[in-house]
Design a protein around this nucleic acid. Structure first.
Lengths: 338, 338
DNA sequence: CTGAAAGCGCTTACAG
DNA sequence: CTGAAAGCGCTTACAG
């Protein structure tokens, strides 16, 4: 360890400066690739830094520069297929671009409100990706006043750029597909009954479902609509309910693949067959949908993370912010369940 | 905004000091709950901080104190059921304890080596959780010399505390269960053929499988051993291979639930039935195992994250480090697949 | 092209 | 119990 290394034995910018026989200012400029450094100087500095295994102290450069190169990402829960796909996509581009990724799980509106207030007041990140977390007016304006750039994924906020899918169209697409397969009595497994986060996605998909049925001249039957809480178990329970109806549906649209998996299990448990007795379509493009033979509307979830991160980086590097709502195309993937 | 707020309009410790008519030192002590502050002073400071919505600037306090309250967590990939469970567990305890969680995906040995070198040299976190990332000698000693405390999950390192399961015992347990169900010809779907990360888990499970077979007097047949790369598709492919054998197995041990799902699909695709023609057991306790009717050895994955994070926090708050290898008990969950 | 110096917003002995 | 001052390790005008 060099004599002037820091409290914990790391090499500091001063060590590098001494080794290269220049000032710390020159080291800083050289290592960050700023202009106005002689080639020979830069080389000397680079060599010194390499041989000392020097990295700038993150907290010090953050404090001095005002930039953290940290992106915060908030998701409702972490252990869910959907959110880990988003995370994976975001992580890939952010690490590629030299940003750190800090994650938070924000499950309730109270946590969300607290998260936003803390994040803004502490000002610990350059950017924030809010995944499937609808913002109320107050939260949006708190965020808008902060230094952090914000991109939302999965939901639009009106005030920030977002990466979304057309959820109404997803609902229509699902019904259209089932209709084309000859189904006229089509049930739906939707989201939560009482969603404290006011998540807009389920509602939009239900609207698309209803719209498309209506435009086919089919009356929407409330008895065919169940809630599944986006879980496998919820999908199964709701499907069991639908199966008990005397005039049960011949096809069911589950607004997530995981609910669809639950629904398939329920059908089999009743000694019925998919798709013969009940056809099932999901939404997501879940890893397991292929092996399960589930027809699904693939929404390319990983791309949501990729796009949100990419846009955020672009904005941070100076791109003009536009009230852009980047829309990811969805793809119908037909398998044996319909 | 007060006159002396910082570059970006945040309230600073000086603003709070002015508002409470004390020095910044007193503000710092009050807000961090340090002793030797008069109750009335502390109250005044707290009020001022609240009304200014003050939070200490993270980079500033990190630089001054030398502690970041950041935990870094490295996983091979993010979009996998297993790792998102670990992540969820770790995030829950860390956010509860006031730590930020920074994540990195580290897919190859080169990335791992680079990650470790960078992490140590930059010294940007107080602690590090390495999940299922075996460390070589050099990496371990680089880490050991750093300021960061390290806990590994999923694999032991010899030098750091770890949270693990007994993978040999998992292999034995699986075979024992199948044996008790009357099976004598038992195949195995294991990990990767050429694993650049030198992941030890698959090997251990294979050892347990072989040991238990041998102790039952059954010869280990290499023809019954296939590789499945921990993926659904891999499991399916390998199962198809096993089904093509003229003397095919009556039961198969898949060393992960996802491979087991793939295997179940392969069996059905061959118009065979689980468990009648082939029984299948997995490992994990995957969310979908219940609905799929998969018998599995639940390894309580979320707890791995919880325990690793908990231990790391304890160590950071002063607990003595012991060469502890915390072992999570695994639980056989019998379902219809066996 | 390079360096001296101020400053980023905190924490931490030290003195009283 | 409280405050003045130094210091954490960088970056950034500014001057030359």
């Amino acid at each position: 360890m060099s004599a002037s290394s820091d409290r914990r034995g790391r090499a500091t910018i001063e060590d590098v400066a001494a080794a290269a026989a220049v000032s710390v200012a020159t080291v800083s400029r050289s290592l960050r690739g700023l202009p106005n450094v002689a080639k020979s100087t830069r080389d000397r500095v680079t060599d010194a830094a390499t041989s000392l295994n020097y990295r700038p102290h993150p907290s010090a450069s953050r404090l001095a520069s005002g930039q953290t190169r940290i992106i915060e990402i908030a998701v409702p829960v972490l252990n869910s297929w959907y959110f880990s796909e988003v995370l994976a996509g975001a992580e890939a581009v952010l690490s590629e671009c030299g940003y750190s990724l800090s994650i938070s799980a924000v499950a309730s509106p109270e946590e969300r409100e607290k998260f936003i207030r803390d994040a803004v007041a502490a000002d610990g990140a350059d950017g924030l990706i809010m995944v499937d977390l609808p913002l109320d007016e107050l939260e949006a304006s708190v965020l808008a006043e902060s230094r952090m750039r914000v991109v939302t994924a999965g939901v639009e906020s009106g005030r920030f750029e977002s990466v979304v899918v057309d959820n109404v169209e997803i609902g229509r697409k699902a019904v259209r597909h089932l209709f084309e397969r000859g189904h006229r009595r089509i049930g739906i497994l939707s989201g939560q009954s009482d969603d404290p986060l006011h998540f807009t996605v389920p509602g939009d998909r239900v609207v698309g479902y209803a719209e498309q049925l209506t435009s086919f001249g089919i009356e929407v039957d409330p008895a065919l609509s169940c809630v599944g809480n986006f879980s496998v178990d919820g999908g199964k329970e709701s499907m069991l309910t639908l199966l008990r109806l005397e005039d049960r549906p011949t096809a069911v649209f589950a607004i997530s693949d995981e609910m669809a998996f639950g629904a398939m299990a329920a059908v089999r448990e009743n000694q019925l067959s998919v798709p013969h007795d009940v056809a099932i379509i999901g939404v997501d493009g879940h890893d397991l949908s292929e092996v399960m033979g589930l027809t699904t509307i693939d929404q390319h979830v990983e791309d949501h993370g990729v796009m949100a991160a990419r846009r955020l980086v672009e904005i941070l590097e100076g791109a003009a912010e536009s009230p852009l709502h980047l829309e990811i195309e969805t793809t119908l993937v037909v398998r044996s369940s319909t």
